[in-house]
Design a protein around this nucleic acid. Structure first.
Length: 689
DNA sequence: CTAGGGTTAG
């Protein structure tokens, strides 16, 4: 009866029946243990003592089963102890031990046993192929595949999936063709591996031809294959076909099928469809939650991601893992939500989740985006091993803070550590030099790039423009070996505004009107250049042209975090609960400014009231509203952190300096690409205007 | 009656 349940994979029934058996006082014999241990999972460890007590530990099958439990669920050292205590060992015992070492990533131990082993069989060799694939090294796995004395279908499948799981899609397809040429009849597992390879190639034509070939060969498609197929269609850009497979599977769907469909919608930004399916799922596991949370996080719905995570925590059926935490931590970074971020890190500690390099990288990202660059640096330094993304994240962080030298030093440090800087590293370092006004350092970095691409030129032109070398910047634009993109002219236009170069401003703006006619920011910049030159007719002409194309200023939002909640403002916003007090505070600030003698001048705090026909919402830019709110609710003397989705405008930049001095508060504003730290009437961004 | 290959999340 136990064996009957076991064959059906009805594990809970096996355990229940065993309980009944014990209650009836029936002593289990050695035959029972392999069956029981297979169903018990990691709880099988609890049966170990029991088994020894009853004297079954000399039975070869019982011993093999207990070894299997420790090999799969750890500690693998106990499995080895059982292995060592055996007087004679079967090939199966050796194979199990080698496989156990591989599943704990212990390459040296696995290889050691393999070398010691006398009678190797096809399973032994296949275990080595799979082992190397688990440590992401299918190339070494291929050596064993090539040298094995005999191969069977499982060996081919092991090699094939080793390639496709590790991003060696072309090799997988090639091997599949070799397999067909060798006349090996494929099965469902073969199909899954090849379909996965097509998914990662994202090639719809290859996908189509593969389905055709499978149909021709009359391979029957089980749920595994159908799910892989669904995923392939989704990744090759055909959600409709994916959905069709999903619908056709009907009741044959398993949790993988549901998860694949949810993540297909979530990845592509169809968040409502994803959520609808997510809510309908019969049972949700970690992957279901992770797919949905990642979907929100990657499509700009950071708040939704965090809320869903909170729901997951309340749920208690499912424990979050590293993947969950990475999405949530990244969402906190995008929002600049440090309170929620710190709470997330606490949760991470409580749950005892260990982080891999990518996990640490997400922490570096979050701290740097939340204005805690020191914490970002601390995490970076605490890491035992770092990858190119660790460096790039911190370099990009330094760039946003204007820490030019630190960013350049990191480039050298990564080279010393044997990690090659990539295009992102150089973009970061050049941006950092630009924000810090480090012309010579930036030049040196630019010269060191072997094949600079259009973005590197854009950064260099931005740097030249910012330090006032506009003619040299224009020369570089003309000398570029490739077609300049909008970013190049955008930098030139901004620099022309700061350094009052009407000629270059007009030149850049005209290129931009062609390249990105929908971007209203370019019209605004050009009209501001005319305004500061007193050319009011031109101002009106540009604004008229902008209205004519039907463009309005892009909406700028600012937000602050208070007690774990984001408070969001738009210019002239009156929708906030504490709106009245906020406006009173704002009026009070303005009155203070006036009496302190801050009046309209070139870098004026109050000028735009006259300019912008906004009598009613005087000075109520989103940043100022957010700061006024923070001044009302936050503890005296604490740092105020504001995030804005666009650039901080000139008026606000000047105003916030004054507010920081008058109120004695440090105010950190995060732009769309940099930090402005205001303290005692000064700002960290010396280059800004 | 033991050992090797399969689908989902970043």
């Amino acid at each position: 009866m136990l064996r009957f349940y076991s064959h059906l994979d009805a594990h809970s029934d096996v355990l229940k029946l065993f309980g009944e058996m014990s209650q009836c006082g029936v002593r289990p014999d050695a035959f029972v243990y392999p069956i029981l241990l297979k169903s018990a999972g990691k709880d099988g460890r609890l049966l170990h003592a029991h088994l020894v007590k009853l004297g079954h530990c000399f039975d070869r099958y019982a011993r093999n089963a207990i070894m299997d439990v420790y090999a799969k669920h750890g500690p693998v050292e106990v499995a080895r102890k059982v292995f060592d205590e055996m007087s004679e060992r079967s090939v199966a015992d050796w194979n199990l031990m080698i496989s156990g070492y591989w599943s704990w990533g212990k390459r040296v131990e696995a290889c050691g046993l393999f070398e010691l082993m006398q009678e190797k069989n096809v399973v032994t060799w296949t275990t080595m192929v799979t082992g190397y694939s688990r440590v992401k090294d299918p190339v070494r796995g291929r050596w064993y595949f090539d040298h094995m004395p005999e191969r069977n279908l499982v060996s081919w499948n092991a090699m094939l999936s080793g390639y496709s799981r590790n991003g060696f899609a072309e090799e997988a397809v090639k091997l599949f063709n070799e397999m067909m040429a060798a006349g090996v009849q494929p099965n469902e597992t073969t199909c899954v591996a090849v379909i996965m390879a097509c998914s990662s190639l994202g090639d719809p034509c290859l996908a189509e031809s593969l389905v055709k070939r499978l149909n021709e060969r009359g391979v029957k498609l089980n749920c595994f294959v159908k799910t892989a197929l669904l995923d392939m269609y989704a990744k090759c850009g055909s959600l409709e076909k994916a959905r069709k497979v999903f619908d056709e599977l009907g009741l044959y769907r398993n949790s993988f099928t549901w998860n694949a469909m949810v993540s297909a919608y979530a990845r592509t930004g169809y968040l409502d469809s994803a959520k609808e399916l997510f809510d309908q799922m019969p049972e949700k596991d970690v992957v279901s939650w992770n797919s949905m949370i990642a979907g929100y996080a990657q499509n700009g719905e950071s708040i939704c991601a965090i809320n869903l995570f909170k729901e997951m925590i309340r749920n208690k059926d499912v424990k979050p893992d590293e993947v969950t935490m990475m999405s949530v931590i990244s969402a906190c970074g995008h929002l600049g939500a440090l309170e929620v971020g710190n709470w997330t890190v606490d949760t991470l500690m409580q749950e005892g989740i260990r982080l891999s390099i990518s996990g640490y990288n997400s922490l570096i990202f979050m701290y740097s985006k939340c204005g805690s660059i020191m914490d970002a640096k601390r995490v970076f330094e605490e890491m035992e091993t770092r990858d190119v993304i660790s460096y790039n994240t911190l370099i990009t962080g330094y760039a946003a803070y204007g820490h030019g030298n630190k960013a350049v030093n990191l480039i050298h440090m990564m080279e010393d550590e044997g990690i090659k800087p990539d295009r992102i590293s150089y973009i970061g370092a050049l941006t950092a030099c630009s924000h810090a006004g480090l012309l010579e350092e930036g030049r040196e970095v630019f010269e060191s790039i072997k094949a600079p691409d259009v973005d590197h030129f854009a950064c260099m032109i931005d740097l030249l423009g910012r330090v006032g070398k506009l003619d040299e910047a224009k020369e570089l634009v003309d000398k570029m070996p490739m077609k300049p993109h909008a970013g190049v002219y955008g930098s030139l236009l901004s620099a022309s505004r700061v350094h009052k170069r009407l000629d270059l401003g007009e030149f850049a703006a005209n290129r931009l009107f062609e390249l990105e006619p929908e971007n209203s920011g370019n019209y605004v910049l050009l009209s501001n250049i005319y305004a500061s030159a007193g050319k009011w007719e031109d101002v009106e002409r540009v604004r008229g042209a902008m209205r004519k194309v039907g463009l309005t200023k892009t909406t700028g939002w600012s937000w602050v975090e208070y007690r774990g909640k984001m408070h969001k403002f738009i210019v002239g916003d009156r929708s906030h609960d504490q709106s009245e007090s906020i406006y009173t505070k704002l009026a009070e600030l303005q009155k203070k400014m006036r009496t302190a003698g801050y009046v309209a001048d070139e870098n004026c705090v109050l000028r735009d009231l006259e300019l912008e026909e906004k009598e009613e919402i005087v000075g109520s830019h989103s940043e100022k509203l957010a700061i006024a709110f923070a001044l009302l609710v936050s503890e005296a003397g604490s740092v105020i952190r504001v995030v804005k989705n666009l650039r901080v405008c000139q008026d606000c930049h000047t105003a916030i300096k004054v507010i920081s001095k008058m109120e004695g508060r440090e105010i950190i504003v995060r732009d769309n690409n940099r930090f402005h730290s205001f303290s005692k009437g000064l700002c960290s961004c010396k280059d800004y205007w």
